[in-house]
Design a protein around this nucleic acid. Structure first.
Lengths: 151, 151
DNA sequence: CCTGAAATTCGGGGGGC
DNA sequence: GCCCCCCGAATTTCAGG
């Protein structure tokens, strides 16, 4: 992981389909060493995969909701069960155990507020062990940036 | 945007470097119509780009912090200024205007708690117009999923 | 809108420096 | 380590159904 590796990652973060020659041109290498470095970072687990950035609105997913959750009990069992249930709800795209006033922060993506109400009623409110939850709608996204690689 | 398009996106979300033949094999098409559909979705803005999923820990970025911010004033000017300042801080990887008890939720990625303290002191606390802020560390991530495409 | 094939570009892997 | 070159595979274009 030297400066060149970080430069390569920075290019790939902006466009993961850039050809090796394009990557090489930016970082000042030819294609083959770039290829070797990328393979190495894939094997080392630095690169976890390649994905597409989608526009949720264009897909009919108009609302993102941040849900702050507090659990009743903090036993290993409750925690594990909660994780399992969340894994089975596709609208829950992120779930984090956090420090502070509440226990979890979920990011939920839905079509609209009606869809969210349905999700709350049919899925989230049915989860046992939730003491309290608070929903916060994303009204506007000001920034969505790549990881800071310092290059 | 029919079922096939969503299926293609679902494949690309899991692996944006899948060859057109691999994509085609999954959705039941040959390579060329897949290519055409992908191009169309790129032009329509459904696909915003391709990126790499990185392991922050492997890059020395050990801590993710969620910062809830309340502003003093909600004038257009304050709001715009705040956005501009956030744009210039690479550690702030996401910033959302939200409904509810506070105004903004930021996602900040740093090396460690010392690094976060430095960021707070040198950058965030210097921003004019912040009434209150509250930091919440991500202790564990239970889920990180693709957008729900219903396929 | 698809299939299938042709032309072009790219990925993946050697050998030399 | 990197660069250059080669071969097989992928992308992209375009005929025809």
């Amino acid at each position: 992981m030297d400066k060149l590796d970080r430069k390569i990652l920075s290019v790939l973060q902006k466009n993961a389909r850039a050809s090796l020659q394009e990557v090489g041109a930016v970082v000042g290498l030819s294609a083959s060493p770039c290829w070797g470095r990328i393979k190495k970072m894939e094997e080392a687990g630095v690169i976890e995969g390649y994905t597409v950035r989608l526009n949720p609105l264009a897909l009919g997913l108009g609302d993102t909701v941040l849900v702050m959750v507090t659990l009743d009990s903090h036993s290993d069992n409750t925690l594990e069960k909660f994780g399992e249930v969340l894994a089975s709800i596709p609208e829950v795209v992120e779930a984090h155990l956090v420090s502070g006033e509440y226990d979890y922060l979920l990011r939920v993506v839905v079509k609209d507020t009606r869809d969210y109400e349905r999700l709350l009623r049919e899925k989230l409110y049915k989860i046992r062990g939730i003491r309290h939850s608070q929903s916060s709608f994303v009204l506007r996204t000001l920034k969505k940036a790549d990881l800071p690689l310092g290059v």
